[in-house]
Design a protein around this nucleic acid. Structure first.
Length: 835
RNA sequence: GCGGGAGUGGCGGAACUGGCAAACGCGCAGGACUUAGGAUCCUGUGUCGCAAGACUUCCGGGUUCGAGUCCCGGCUCCCGCACCA
């Protein structure tokens, strides 16, 4: 053992653990990772989505995300930018609170411990963080300004309170935003979400729907993220059409007669529907109202009232899971009829839960011939189905066996009076124009997006800064009184009442009205965690500022964020809310830009044993032991090597050994490199190619191929027992530095440099030096590769032919005169023989 | 159902605007050095074949001198959204 240690010392082996400790301490001491936010020139703000500090600690997925960002930041720094790479914690929210409840410890003491653990892990991973700018959303110095953001929205009429049907999670006992309900289940715990009617605070994000959509076109973001936002915003261009409700009198034999032509009077009620297919109005054979529609009570006839009320009651308690797509359509007839303005015919008015109150007008005109849901319903209820659109070969007379939903070119209108023969798109415009002329409709743009419900009936969040006064109504807490601190209470467990745990703390919620001084009561709900994270990027450069949320000069200098990296699971949550809040602050004149992130890249996910690495799948790998065994440098590099960064990769425990071997070889090559003598010309050529490749790949986040190129280069440097020359390996140390910062620093120092490798200039490449003087060209005969030839890069076709024919292995395939020869300079030669 | 992405050796993955498919790494096999090797270093490694050679990028067609890459048709998997009118 002793002998071995001595041998190791003598051989000067790479000791990752010792060396990483050494450099982390050195960086801290020298302030290597600090950013002079006030004076630094060429600012570059590179941001990673801040984590929720779970008790389990940082997992490999987090580290994968952070490392990708860190490499980008370190690379930009070596390009001469002043890079700002801050870190923080998204520590409020249900997740933290539930965990605290589970282990029976108060989050006030639990969260700081988790944060300490995370910080330790992040430091061990060697991220280039300036810790002076760390923030936590749970810090009153931070959430003071979260509350301030709320007040800015309130001031601008963008925050309002209403009683609304909201998503209620019976397990977490709180309201959820639409974005947090996944297929009818709670995003956090998977419980079936219920509908409840509660008084909630909302943000009018729908006012910004159009702008949120339009601006997407200007953003340099992962396409998949933009698409997800587009789908979520869900713009549909359509029309609202009014159907006049008419009374019917039953006469003998069950037939009905219109009452307004003498025998009856029309009800002065319109049912307004939203449709994207106004062209099919002649095929609208009935109307459907959502069960919650306010007109249901009004239009239901006495005969049908009991059945209608029973149906409404039954569907009101439905949970959202029941609303999953199903062919089993249910509904009841209201007894009422409405006039189809196009046909002049009365059509029955039904209610059914396949129509949603939240979308459009909560009412539809049903066109069973051309909509599959209406078709199913009409079949179930025995309602008439009329064809009004047909393909050229369709027989207009035969009944439709299935809905015909084509709206593309060959389809044309039939059975639609003056619109017959028009294409769907043409008819759509014409019908809307006709309805507008007759004041029965108008063109309307609808968005799927709903207003953002931010109230949470939980404890662990920033209290919403409102005070209710009997005389003055809801009064905003004056800015000077912020923050409204979250009181420390022992019993923070939520209950079924729909009222926050804070409502049990009388000493806290009883306050004087800021306006009139009368006894008043605080809002006892807290705000959604996503409000915390919707502006944190604005805070980072200004974390040391106490009297404002952010400093105007620093904000103008550092924002918008130059590069943002995070998971695509936030495509419609965090990323949409952040854009919205930024737009609002921009409109309020508080920030000079209306988009927070110029560039966003969604990273992929780590797969292990065929599933995404997550606690749910039970396949989580904890970085700590891997870092202990292999070193952070190996781990970082391995994570980046296992696949394209934007696609993620498959994690295999044994794979890290290859990367570690690479760093071992790098170590000995540099340590043993000779500083005199000439570098090898071929190696230098390869070096310049490698610099070019890595310089090209890193900004594109093509980390896996950059690493492969460096490995390939090192293999060329170390063929056999060859000793490397210093000039061959010194630039490689710089190329490796963003990936494996500790070993790079150590080697850089051993090469005699006094400065940090991160303060060195990224190596440049010489295109001439990177060029080959002899290239290998493939030779094909009739398109099949038969051999290769060595040529000068500028060799002519004749030179190539001569070289090819000189090779027996190629020449033997050629008989007679070639019919055709294709020569692509520097690539290949194809000799095509006659047919 | 709609939208997005992807199918390449035993495995993870390379391949620029169509131009030597399988770079790089893992694994595996053989060898060297060794008391030893789970260290290190060398060599080999798509499939079939002794070889010459033939075949090979999910399947089937097509365009082209030439297709993993382009076009048409189909299959499979992953990720969003999901009765959005």
């Amino acid at each position: 053992m002793m002998e071995r240690a001595t041998a190791a010392e003598a051989e000067d082996l790479y000791d990752a653990t010792a060396l990483e400790k050494k450099w982390q301490a050195r960086w801290e001491k020298n302030g290597t990772n600090t950013t002079d936010v006030a004076r630094g020139s060429r600012p570059y703000y590179t941001l990673m989505m801040f984590p929720y500090p779970s008790a389990e600690g940082l997992h490999v997925g987090n580290l994968f995300a952070f490392t990708g960002n860190d490499i980008h930041g370190r690379f930009m720094r070596m390009q001469g930018y002043t890079v700002f790479e801050p870190f923080g914690f998204d520590a409020f929210g249900i997740h933290s609170e539930n965990y605290a409840l589970k282990v029976g410890e108060h989050p006030v003491t639990l969260i700081p411990k988790n944060i300490d653990n995370f910080r330790r892990q992040v430091k061990a991973a060697g991220l280039m963080i300036d810790w002076r700018y760390e923030l936590s959303t749970t810090d009153p110095k931070y959430y003071k300004w979260t509350q301030w953001v709320f007040l800015q929205l309130l001031k601008r009429g963008l925050a309002y309170k209403k009683k609304a049907a909201v998503n209620w999670c019976p397990n977490d006992k709180t309201v959820l935003a639409n974005e947090q309900v996944i297929a009818g289940e709670c995003e956090r715990c998977g419980a079936k979400v219920e509908q409840r009617s509660l008084e909630q605070w909302f943000f009018r994000i729908t006012d910004y729907a159009g702008r949120l959509l339009e601006n997407l076109g200007t953003l340099d973001w992962s396409e998949s993220t933009k698409t997800a936002q587009r789908n979520w915003l869900g713009r549909s261009d359509g029309a609202e059409i009014s159907f006049r409700v008419v009374d019917f009198l039953e006469i003998a034999g069950g037939a009905t007669v219109r009452a307004d032509t003498g025998e009856m009077s029309a009800m002065e009620t319109d049912i307004t529907v939203f449709t994207t297919r106004a062209d099919t109005i002649f095929g609208a054979t009935y109307l459907v109202l959502a069960p919650e529609h306010p007109l249901v009570k009004r239009v239901a006839t006495d005969d049908e009232r009991a059945r209608v009320e029973e149906y409404v009651a039954r569907t009101a308690s439905r949970d959202l899971v029941a609303r999953k797509v199903t062919k089993d359509k249910t509904g009841v007839f209201t007894g009422a009829f409405a006039m189809n303005p196009a046909t002049g015919e009365p059509i029955p008015v039904w209610i059914a839960d396949y129509v949603l109150m939240e979308y459009g007008t909560g009412a539809i005109m049903a066109v069973p011939g051309h909509d599959s849901r209406d078709f199913e319903f009409a079949n179930a209820m025995g309602l008439p189905i009329v064809r009004v659109v047909a393909a050229p070969n369709d027989n207009e007379g035969t009944p439709l066996k299935e809905p015909f939903e084509d709206s593309d070119d060959p389809a044309r209108l039939v059975n639609s009076g003056r619109f017959n023969g028009m294409t769907v798109s043409k008819a759509n415009q014409e019908v809307v124009a006709w309805l507008e002329d007759h004041e029965r409709g108008r063109a309307v743009v609808n968005f799927r997006l709903h207003d953002w419900c931010i109230s949470r009936q939980r404890y662990w969040g920033p209290p919403i800064p409102i005070i209710y006064c009997d005389k003055c109504g809801p009064v905003p807490v004056p800015e000077k009184d912020l923050p409204v601190e979250l009181p420390r209470v022992a019993d923070f467990k939520p209950d079924d009442s729909g009222i926050s745990p804070l409502a049990r703390v009388e000493s806290w919620y009883r306050v004087a009205c800021p306006t009139c001084g009368a006894q008043a009561r605080r809002e006892t709900d807290v705000s959604d965690t996503f409000l915390d994270s919707s502006w944190y990027f604005l805070r980072y450069p200004s974390t040391q500022l106490q009297n404002a949320a952010f400093d105007p000069a620093l904000t103008a200098k550092w924002l918008p964020v130059n590069s943002y990296i995070g998971g695509n699971e936030h495509a419609v949550l965090h990323l949409l809310y952040s854009r919205f809040i930024t737009m609002v602050l921009h409109d309020a004149g508080l920030v000079p830009f209306d988009e927070p992130f110029k560039k966003f890249r969604a990273h992929g996910h780590i797969i292990k044993d065929g599933a995404k690495m997550s606690k749910t799948h039970g396949n989580v790998v904890i970085p700590d032991t891997i870092i202990e065994n292999w070193g952070a440098d190996s781990f970082r590099t391995y994570l980046m090597f296992l696949g394209p960064y934007e696609e993620g990769g498959d994690y295999q425990d044994r794979g890290i050994a290859g990367v570690r071997r690479f760093l071992d070889r790098l170590w000995s090559s540099v340590v043993e490199a000779s500083s005199d003598g000439k570098p090898d010309a071929d190696v230098i050529r390869k070096l310049h190619k490698t610099i070019r490749k890595v310089t090209d790949d890193v900004p594109k986040l093509n980390y896996n191929t950059a690493i492969a190129a460096m490995m390939e280069y090192l293999n060329a440097v170390r063929t056999g027992e060859r000793q490397a020359n210093r000039a061959e390996v010194e630039p490689l140390v710089q190329l490796v530095a963003p990936f494996a910062p500790h070993i790079a620093e150590e080697l850089w120092e051993r090469l005699g440099h006094k400065n940090s490798v991160f303060d060195s200039n990224w190596p440049s490449f010489d295109t001439k030096l990177a060029a080959d003087d002899i290239i290998t060209v493939a030779v094909q005969v009739n398109g099949k590769t038969r051999g290769t030839i060595q040529l000068a890069p500028d060799a002519s076709q004749d030179d190539a032919m001569t070289a090819a024919m000189a090779q027996e292995g190629i020449a033997k395939f050629i008989s007679g005169k070639p019919a055709r020869v294709i020569f692509v300079r520097g690539r290949m030669l194809n000799i095509v023989l006659g047919a």
